[in-house]
Simulated assay, not measured.
Amino acid sequence: MMHASRAVDIPGVALNPNARVEIKKIGHEQQPVFIVDQALINVEAMVAFAAEHTTFGPPPSTSRYPGRVAPLPASYMPNILAALRRPLESVFGYVAGPRPTSFGFYGLATVLTADLMPDQVIPHADATQPNAYASVHFLSAHDYGGTAFYRHKATGLEVVSPAKSQASYQQRNAELEAYKGSPHSKLQALYEEIAYIEPVANRLILYRAGQLHSAKMAGVDTLPDDPRTGRLTANLFVNIG
Rank of each mutant, 00 (worst) to 15 (best):
N18G: 13
N18L: 13
I23D: 08
K24Q: 15
G27M: 01
Q30C: 09
F34G: 12
V36P: 13
T55W: 12
F56W: 04
P60G: 00
P60C: 00
R64E: 14
P66A: 02
G67I: 03
G67W: 04
L72I: 06
S75Q: 13
Y76D: 07
P78I: 03
L81M: 12
A82Q: 13
A82I: 09
A82N: 08
L84R: 10
R85E: 15
R86E: 15
F92S: 08
S102P: 10
F103A: 12
F103P: 07
G104H: 05
F105S: 15
T110E: 06
T110W: 03
V111W: 07
D115N: 13
D119R: 11
I122D: 03
N131A: 14
A132V: 13
Y133M: 08
S135F: 12
V136G: 13
F138P: 08
G145D: 05
A148P: 01
A148K: 04
A148I: 05
Y150W: 02
R151C: 11
K153P: 04
V159K: 02
V160E: 06
P162N: 06
N173I: 09
N173M: 14
A174R: 07
E177Y: 02
P183T: 01
H184G: 00
I194T: 07
A195W: 07
A195D: 13
Y196N: 05
R203A: 03
H213G: 05
A215F: 10
M217V: 12
A218K: 10
T222L: 12
L223S: 10
